[in-house]
Design a protein around this nucleic acid. Sequence first.
DNA 1: ATGGAGCAACCGAACGTTCGGTCAGCTTAG
DNA 2: CTAAGCTGACCGAACGTTCGGTTGCTCCAT
Lengths: 196, 196
Amino acid sequence: MPTSSRPRYDRQSLTIVALDVFRQRGYDATSMEQLAAAAGISKAAIYHHVSGKEELLDAGLSMALDALEAVLGEEQATTGAPVDRVRHVMRRVVELEVELLAAVSVLLRARGNSAVERRALDRRRRFDRAVARLIAQAQSDGSLRDDIDPVIAARLAIGTATWLVEWYGTGGKLGVDALADAVVTMTFDGLAVRKR
Amino acid sequence: MPTSSRPRYDRQSLTIVALDVFRQRGYDATSMEQLAAAAGISKAAIYHHVSGKEELLDAGLSMALDALEAVLGEEQATTGAPVDRVRHVMRRVVELEVELLAAVSVLLRARGNSAVERRALDRRRRFDRAVARLIAQAQSDGSLRDDIDPVIAARLAIGTATWLVEWYGTGGKLGVDALADAVVTMTFDGLAVRKR
DNA sequence: ATGGAGCAACCGAACGTTCGGTCAGCTTAG
DNA sequence: CTAAGCTGACCGAACGTTCGGTTGCTCCAT
């Protein structure tokens, strides 16, 4: 069966392929040859769409960060009781992480070796701090415990959610709703059974 | 001031330097030249102690995994009520992660690109499964909630603890005991304040 | 309908640089 | 003195990128 046409990409579709390969191999361990093989085009063709490897990383990291930051602007994250806002943000983070698994996975492994990575790390820290402020508000109104520093609580909570990109999909059939439930339940109510 | 002597390394001390650089830059993004610069010796001198870059990675990953696995064999992890054993393991994991920060950080970023990394990932999965078995026991005797699958609970709990290597030490003066307390408290009791 | 022009996307070959590693010889600690 | 530890110069392979050229598709004039 002859191949009568060549695969066609644009910047966005190439970024999606790149993210999958970066997720599997790590950004630094992925060569442009490997990326080209995954896309089914030559290495040189990639440079028609992007100026270089880093532009693919930048595009992918932006996808993840744009989505996470947008959560903070949602109505349920900006109005209502602080504790409900924290819950909403946590659920949405889990949902987004499942939806943008590769992009978030690459994001959580950003190191700071380049300006692109450092910008992403800055945005991540700003996101963490915004969550910490929400948690601090919920602590102030007495709905969340205040014996854990809000910055630490935010980091632990976000870490719990974020780490799932490392194992989600590796077995079992847990849906995103059930997963978000588990994360929120453990984060807010803990694993221990209530003593009565 | 003349340098009248050259730094001297052995395999272990070189591994420690390597882990620090691997942690900062990522293993794949760390060149042997950068490693040599960090150690203050020439690149060629490294090969007197190790056969290659991967041997340094293997040594570092083994440090982390040996320590984690040893926790599972401790008396407080093998005897007593299952829920107490889970608590003990969580505390010890946090303590070890602080103590072996660079090694654990490199471990959690292992991808599977080489036999060394795949072995480490296998050992990580076995560790996770052992914790899941402990959690399942505590669920069976009613001390931990059983509406979250034990494998998922284990992954979430370990994820909470493990993620700390990404931010521990980046500000604040939280001691390891207080940190372990925060992790255990959130994992078992959650962030929400009890309703009465 | 057809063929030519134009274009975005693609190609193989080549580039300069960097990579992990090697080697003969030098240095230093015991 | 001796051997462990180290060095600068070097290696072939691979890296990300560039270059001049090709391809397949769409559009438009005839």
